[in-house]
Design a protein around this nucleic acid. Structure first.
Length: 208
DNA sequence: CGTTGGATTGGCT
DNA sequence: GCCAATCCAACGC
């Protein structure tokens, strides 16, 4: 009970984004509500980004937008895209490194009514199955950019249950136009809660 | 300062 | 499967 509800420590994030992306599968994203309730979901899809990666926002160096991404690990990097959507990332690696993991999909666990209301759909498979959908359901916008996930506040991630290799699929990242060959997307295989674009790509088994 | 296109989504063909 | 929506960061002049 206690271990399952423990927030992931700073050391969890102080590793290469590829490692963190794989290890985040099965963990629980928690967003405490003002009324004491919680929104929560199990991470089922992630993507790793790093500084030497042409598809990463950090590739062209430190800018106002990517400042948080270059900061200390264990913080939330939120950005706005396509004129209407937010995406949330977990900052990884050493301070100053410019690596992060994009949270692409979670399986809704707590606060379904609230998330359904925000998403305007009752289908649980459509609530958090995509980076933009996830942020809308969890009420994540630019005001949460830079939030410390370890301190415990607006948002944190709990230990949950790590996903065994047999259930992990890997494949190319989606929605990018460069470095499409890198298999840096990680999914919980056969989860009904994966993102729309991930469903089109059949992942292969991770490692052995 | 103008242009370009994006780590997406929902709706329509 | 295709495309518009709609803002803004990055880049070129």
């Amino acid at each position: 009970m206690v271990s399952l509800d423990t927030r992931l420590p700073r050391t969890f994030y102080t590793r290469p984004s590829l490692e963190v992306a794989r290890d985040l599968l099965g963990r629980i994203v928690v967003r405490p509500q003002p009324d004491g309730a919680r929104l929560a979901g199990r991470i089922v899809e992630t993507e790793a980004y790093r500084q030497d990666d042409p598809a990463s926002h950090s590739f062209h160096g430190r800018t106002a937008r990517t400042e948080v991404m270059f900061g200390p690990p264990g913080h939330l990097y939120v950005y706005f895209t396509y004129g209407m959507h937010f995406c949330m990332n977990v900052v990884t690696g050493e301070d100053g490194e410019g690596s992060a993991v994009l949270l692409r999909a979670v399986e809704p666990l707590e606060g379904l009514p609230e998330m359904s209301r925000r998403r305007r759909t009752a289908d649980p498979r459509l609530i958090c199955s995509g980076p933009g959908r996830l942020c809308q359901a969890f009420g994540v916008d630019r005001s949460l950019n830079g939030v410390d996930l370890v301190a415990g506040g607006e948002l944190h991630i709990e230990t949950g249950r790590p996903t065994p290799d047999a259930e992990v699929g890997v494949g190319p990242r989606v929605g990018i136009r460069v470095a499409v060959d890198q298999p840096w997307r990680f999914v919980v295989e056969h989860s009904p809660f994966l993102s729309r674009r991930a469903l089109g790509i059949r992942p292969r088994r991770a490692r052995g």
